[in-house]
Design a binder for these strands. Sequence first.
DNA 1: TATTGTTATACTCTATAACTATA
DNA 2: TATAGTTATAGAGTATAACAATA
Lengths: 159, 159
Amino acid sequence: MPELMTLAGGTPSDSPVDLGDLPSSIGFALRRAQLLVFNDFLAALASEDIRATQFAVLTVMNANPGLRQTQVCAALGIQTTNFVALFDGLEQRGLAERRPVETDRRAKGLFLTDAGQIALTRLTQLQAAHEARFTERIGADGKQLLLSLLQRLTDPAPA
Amino acid sequence: MPELMTLAGGTPSDSPVDLGDLPSSIGFALRRAQLLVFNDFLAALASEDIRATQFAVLTVMNANPGLRQTQVCAALGIQTTNFVALFDGLEQRGLAERRPVETDRRAKGLFLTDAGQIALTRLTQLQAAHEARFTERIGADGKQLLLSLLQRLTDPAPA
DNA sequence: TATTGTTATACTCTATAACTATA
DNA sequence: TATAGTTATAGAGTATAACAATA
């Protein structure tokens, strides 16, 4: 478990250190918030020993049964080369499995096992509680506003 | 230079993959945005070969000449053990230096060199251009709103 | 005893190159 | 010739333990 957060730790209030223009930069603020939220996620799901990326993979598999590795990787921005060990872990824990794809013998379809389905339900509940903690801080309206701003930041506005 | 971004890459539009509830989670959206912005920062300052953390350290040194390592680390959430190599790099490039502290012979005060001052000016200009690119996407008002929401997310509201 | 800075080290995450079996 | 999955490996980033010098 991470102890402190790079670019995010410390306690701003008890420190007389001047951060200059950093606090007014989008990247700095995003980094601080992201690390804080991710650490909270990790703590909230500590009993399940799951990483944010693993949770994302399980979620996508659940929404798209039989999806191929390449597609999951493309959707989540994971390199296929790094996905192998990640998925091996889920498979060894009996949460997910690879199955042959009839139409393409190179490919493998990814599926949640029954245990994986049950685990994901539990994980999703814990995640929802974690999410609610932060939603409470900025309100439901604030959350929608934040998501909207982040999306506009991420997806360049169309001409 | 990072090729793709974990939890952030892919091209949502050309993919029929259902991401489930991920897009409506604060952490997922924050992660995507943060990685996108950091990659842009890295690209914008590629000619200077500087990391976001190094830029942050230089900025804090500039605002607080003579600050000790421990204080810089606390302010930015860097562990002192990892700070050593980071600062060694800046020192070897002639951008910063450690000086003895008169009142405490254990401590070392951190200072920008003249070359460091000049470099930081250049870096700050490049950073400002990068910042402007994203401010343009959400407007000056949007940026202020975003920073405000992120701060409320990060600093638990006082009772 | 506690603190400042340091070394050594390990673990995670992410990246590149190269291979295999299919298509 | 290109693609899906894989292995091996290297590089960042971040974590802990232990130490010397000084307070």
